[in-house]
């Protein structure tokens, strides 16, 4: 099961925070800070996996990937395949790229609720819904189509 998906920038500012098992807000902030502490001190040219036992309990791992100024982070337990999660992140980023045509950090900041909608089409309750990025884009467009006016009024 996937426990959390976090996007933060290279200064440690959270850009998207989604926990699939509930954590109180203070704990969430603490986790974000401790993850940032680990990631920003990691050398390049090392593996993308970090053991996350101390924050999430036994046998949990963290995979991260950097895209431009952003860290994409997925935390999951031992029922998931680490390498597959790397591919999942690739699908997530490709989908964002299609939805925002050349996604950048600002797109995610200002449209965080749309990013949540996209993520909900990929992961539900910590399980993968869909790995086909064009299917995901289609589902998201259907939803946005019916709530276009709302995006304008926010």
């Amino acid at each position: 099961m996937i426990r959390a998906v976090i996007i933060m920038n290279d200064e440690g500012k959270p850009r998207l925070v989604k926990f699939y098992d509930h954590q109180p807000m203070e704990k969430q902030q603490e986790i974000i800070r401790s993850i940032y502490g680990v990631l920003c001190s990691r050398a390049e040219n090392v593996s993308n996996f970090v053991q996350a036992d101390s924050t999430f309990g036994k046998d949990t791992r963290l995979v991260y990937k950097t895209f431009a100024t952003l860290y994409f982070i997925v935390i999951f337990d031992d029922s998931e395949n680490e390498l597959a999660i790397l591919d999942l992140m690739q699908v997530f980023v490709e989908t964002l790229d299609k939805c925002f045509s050349n996604v950048c950090e600002l797109d995610i900041v200002f449209n965080f609720n749309k990013v949540h909608t996209i993520l909900d089409e990929i992961i539900l309750g910590g399980q993968v819904v869909e790995m086909n990025s064009s299917e995901i884009v289609k589902a998201v467009n259907d939803i946005s189509g019916s709530s276009l006016f709302l995006f304008l009024s926010l």
Partner: peptide, 18 residues
């Protein structure tokens, strides 16, 4: 209401009580 709630989600992400 929907706009306020969207703001609260952003504020929550930054770690403030909501």
């Amino acid at each position: 209401r929907h706009r306020n709630l969207a703001k609260l989600m952003f504020i929550h992400m930054l770690g403030y009580p909501t």
